[in-house]
Nucleic acid binder design. Structure first.
Lengths: 148, 148
DNA sequence: TTGTTTTAGTTGCAATTGCAACTAGGTGCA
DNA sequence: TGCACCTAGTTGCAATTGCAACTAAAACAA
């Protein structure tokens, strides 16, 4: 019950955090170099873009992108200020709102993807075979804490 | 040259970021629940603890933990204010300083490790065999951008 | 009904980060 | 030596985050 992690596990733990951090910062740099917004904007916009129709509730976005509500609230403020999304009031629940992507927002998603995907390709995908990528996601999925 | 990442790679990419984020926040919560400082303090203190002797230059710490110099400078301010490290001026280079861990700092490392390691064990290590952990680090190492 | 608890979202404030500009001490070179 | 450039580290300022407290609307229960 009080077991200490094996050296392999510790090594993997460290590697996980280093790698993620470095990759993230590489990709953020790539986006910035093209005067594009950061990844958190993309995450939200993409969810809304995929959702189509009636948009999403704020808490739904929060669940999808794993962001707490107060930070999401302010992230959406910024997106709204930049006319990429709109807050509509929600007919079925008076507390909440329904977030919809604007056409500018959709354009932004489309503008960001080529840069984003190229960065993923060069810095990540190109270094793995498809099988390795598959294995990697499976291993990561095993350690992803269950959403509660 | 303009290849888009494979679905497997995209999946692994997403999983990498989600998993790392969730695990990090789980562990930070565990530390906080014991009134212990956050992981970035641990990272610095551990490097200094391992270094022994004459301590480390700030830039050396920065390279080890992958933190930029201005944020490191302020992180060390906080550690110093909490008497966990000391800045000494550096005889061989008048610009720099040499950071040494204090005995309180060493105690802190030792106080944090049980909580930290238990969190790693429960949330991460316990979910992988040693072989899987090994594979995971190898795959992550393949995609870790080379330090420049 | 009415009161209690939960959920959705916002806000104030303090702490942390990112960026760019800065100081000051090396280094290289003519 | 003198000068241009580089490196180590700090700082000011604006933006972002984290935390706790808050509003207001469900949801539930007596």
């Amino acid at each position: 019950m009080n077991k200490t992690p094996s050296p392999q596990a510790i090594q993997a733990w460290i590697q996980l955090h280093r790698t993620q951090r470095q990759l993230l910062s590489t990709v953020e740099t790539a986006l910035k170099s093209q005067d594009l917004p950061a990844l958190d904007w993309y995450d939200v916009l993409l969810e809304l873009h995929k959702a189509k129709g009636d948009g999403l509730r704020q808490f739904e976005i929060g669940e999808k992108i794993l962001l707490n509500k107060h930070n999401l609230s302010r992230l959406i403020d910024r997106l709204e200020k930049n006319l990429l999304v709109e807050r509509h009031q929600c007919s079925e629940d008076g507390r909440g709102n329904r977030i919809k992507i604007t056409s500018e927002g959709s354009c932004m998603v489309k503008a960001m993807w080529p840069v984003y995907s190229q960065a993923i390709q060069q810095n990540f995908a190109a270094k793995l075979t498809e099988e390795e990528a598959q294995t990697l996601s499976e291993l990561l999925a095993k350690v992803l804490p269950a959403a509660q």
